[in-house]
Amino acid sequence: MTLSFAHRHVLEDHIVGFETKPNPHHLAVARRPTILSVLSHAGFEAGVKAALQALEGVSVRICGPAEWLAVSHSVGPEALLRLVRAIEGVSAFDHSDGRVLMQITGPNVRKILSKCLAVDIDRDRFPIGASASMQIAHVAGNLARTGEDAFEIIVPRSYAGTLFEEVKEMGREFALTAAFSPE
Rank of each mutant, 00 (worst) to 15 (best):
H25G: 08
E67T: 09
D13F: 07
G106S: 14
L113Y: 02
I153V: 15
A130V: 10
A178H: 07
H25E: 07
S181C: 14
S59F: 05
G17H: 02
N108H: 05
A46K: 12
G57P: 07
P107G: 08
V29C: 02
H25V: 06
K111S: 11
A175Q: 15
L52P: 11
A70S: 07
A46P: 01
D122T: 01
H73W: 09
C63I: 13
P127S: 05
V58R: 14
C63W: 02
E169P: 03
V29H: 07
E166P: 05
D97Y: 01
L83N: 12
A132Q: 14
L117W: 10
E12Q: 05
T34S: 09
L176C: 11
A130E: 12
G129S: 09
F18L: 13
S181D: 12
D97F: 00
S133I: 01
H14T: 08
N23Q: 09
I136Q: 06
H95M: 03
A54C: 04
R145M: 12
P107T: 08
E152S: 03
A132C: 14
M102H: 01
F164V: 13
G141D: 00
R110T: 13
P182N: 08
R8Y: 00
E166K: 14
V16D: 13
N23T: 14
E12F: 10
A54D: 15
K49V: 01
R99H: 08
I136D: 07
T146V: 11
E12M: 11
D120L: 05
I121E: 05
R61E: 04
E19L: 06
C116L: 07
L3C: 02
C116I: 01
R99S: 00
R82E: 15
A54I: 01
A178Q: 06
T162V: 02
E67N: 14
V167I: 15
V155S: 15
A42C: 05
E166H: 07
P22W: 05
V16I: 11
H26V: 00
G43K: 04
A144Q: 11
K115D: 06
D122L: 04
L81S: 01
I104A: 10
V109N: 05
S37E: 06
R157G: 08
E152L: 04
F5V: 15
V139N: 06
D94M: 03
L176T: 15
S131Q: 05
L83C: 10
L176A: 12
T105A: 03
G64W: 04
D97M: 06
G171T: 12
C116S: 14
T2R: 07
K115E: 14
R61T: 01
Q53N: 07
R85I: 01
F18N: 08
E173T: 10
